[in-house]
């Protein structure tokens, strides 16, 4: 079967860390600039939407509108960070900078490169969560109790979007075509995943659709629960969904990239 080739278990070697380190070194060269967006964005959003728009909104499930969207802002940032790192960022490194070609001339192989890129993408998400969570804590919009759990969870959520992004990178004919998944997949998800209004105002079929196919829905649900200071048992289902999807897309993205690059 031709499809089986996309489900081969990839090799995970500790050398992938060297690719991760390469990206980290580049990130650290502009560390101030890189830390600015996750620091500034939640403040701007909370001022405009939480406290501006929010004055026209009644409480949602007993919390203020600002409190409702604050966890969603973290979730969205997790999605953006790794998705864009592993689409536009990886594509530029692969195609324009030939960074991957340079790396595979050493004892590293393409599996190490792609895995390193994916874990780096997840790390970008974690960094964003690490910067944003304290900022939002200072606004008093997150309960302190489980807030720390948001950080490791950001890595998992980030990994999922890194892997999904890498699948698009593997099949895109050029960099412009990456605008399609950004526009048709990421933007609707940004709006319809229980981010800025509760899912249950949507028609029931749409709710099921969101839960089944929009990964951000699950990330928002987990972070919102943690931010409210409760550990609802239902988040096990969400975490499991994310875990399984991550494994599937990890394997898929590795195989798709190998198919593209090993010629």
């Amino acid at each position: 079967m031709p499809y089986i080739q996309y489900l081969q278990i990839p090799e995970l070697n500790r050398r992938l860390l060297k690719v991760w380190l390469r990206n980290k070194d580049v990130f650290m060269k502009n560390v101030k600039l890189n830390f600015l967006p996750p620091f500034l964005e939640p403040i701007l959003y909370l001022l405009a939407m939480g406290f501006g728009l929010g004055t026209f909104v009644d409480n949602i499930d007993g919390v203020s509108y600002a409190q409702f969207i604050a966890p969603a802002l973290i979730a969205v940032s997790i999605m953006y960070a790794s998705f864009f790192e592993c689409t536009y960022g990886s594509y530029v490194r692969m195609y324009y900078q030939k960074t991957f070609d340079a790396i595979v001339a050493t004892p590293l192989i393409i599996d190490d490169v792609i895995a390193g890129e994916l874990f780096w993408g997840a790390t970008r998400s974690t960094i964003n969560a690490l910067v944003m969570t304290p900022v939002i804590l200072i606004f008093g919009l997150i309960d302190f109790k489980y807030a720390i759990l948001i950080i490791p969870f950001a890595f998992l959520g980030g990994l999922l979007f890194a892997c999904i992004g890498m699948c698009f990178t593997a099949i895109t004919p050029n960099i412009m075509a990456l605008n399609y998944p950004a526009l048709l997949f990421i933007t609707p998800m940004f709006l319809f995943s229980g981010t800025f209004f509760p899912l249950d105002v949507l028609p029931e079929t749409l709710q099921y659709f969101a839960l089944a196919f929009l990964p951000l829905t699950h990330i928002v649900r987990v972070i919102r629960t943690l931010a409210y200071g409760s550990l609802e048992p239902f988040i096990i289902v969400d975490v499991l969904w994310i875990l399984i999807a991550s494994v599937i897309f990890f394997i898929l993205s590795m195989n798709l990239m190998k198919k593209r690059l090993i010629i």
């Binding site: 070194d25 030939k98 340079a102 050493t106």
Partner: peptide, 21 residues
């Protein structure tokens, strides 16, 4: 085709590459 890392300086290019080995 040259594939030096444009994100790095001359020294950093070599420093980073030596890590792969």
């Amino acid at each position: 085709e040259n594939n030096l890392d444009p994100d790095f300086t001359v020294y950093e290019n070599l420093r980073n590459y030596s890590r792969y080995f």
